[in-house]
Amino acid sequence: MLFYFFRRLGRALVTIVGISVIVFVVARLSGDPTLQLAPEDATPEELAQIRSELGLDKPIWMQYVVFVEHVAQGDFGTSIRYQQPALSLVLSVLPATLQLGLSAFVLSTIVGVLLGVVTALKRDTWIDSGLRGVVVVGQAAPSFWLGMMLILLFSVELQWLPSSGRMSLAHMVLPTMALALSSVAVVLRLTRSAMLETMSADYIRFLRSKGMSKSLIVWKHALRNASIPVIAVLGLQLSYLIGGAVIVETVFNWPGVGRLMVEALNARDFAVIQAGALLVSFFTVGANLLVDLLFGLVDPRIRYE
């Protein structure tokens, strides 16, 4: 198990280094920030001066090394736009994004798994086909459209829930739903097919021949076995949800990393883009590491590998 853990940890570190390179390069591709900073009538000499202050005159690999050195010390640079440390800017809005992403994750996991089990057990009944029909719609609809529809229905028509901002728990409901629905669909479908497969396994028949009750067979044995492929996808879903939060934030005016990043992109605010992307990546990679460990906990065959 320890070997397994270290192997996964090593892989996670490699992923983070890879992401840092991509983030760094992509931010550079988005344009030259010097022009944004310099006065409009700046001479070429003044521009060169600014570039050298920012370290932009050095070869790109050296810029990367400097960048990594600074990051390792917790210094993501200063926001060109706000003239504040980029890290503290991102950290101030990160909880909002994580709150949204994680609650959507928890919601979609619980609802998706429960409905997956139900549809599998009620296979080919109206419950099965009805639920799966609803879910297909949920999966096909893009989250921003879904967000707008939810606002129309619950905020504009029914006036039950607020449509924008992050003031209370009630504010969370609609964005979480908009974000979670497509993920519910994925988790449901996977849980359903995994449950159908495990329920027809030989060991389930042997459990029945031992006189075990149906609920024990379903919830203890079948679900645990079916959870293996589901856990694999949960890792992906988490990355997707945190990424997707960025879009939904814009629709619901949710003050998170997504909104900050969109603004930063428009302003070519490198430091903020890098800090935002990297921090979100850290959390995603960390979450995936957790999922991998969960695998090891659930499946002894991995533990003893």
């Binding site: 042997f206 021949s209 075990m212 645990r224 065959r301």
Partner: peptide, 19 residues
């Protein structure tokens, strides 16, 4: 079942829950 009447199946490699 399992108390008064029991059954053994063909393939022992898949008769037990692997987890």
């Amino acid at each position: 079942r399992g108390a008064k009447i029991s059954m053994i199946f063909q393939d022992p490699m898949v008769a037990l829950d692997p987890l």
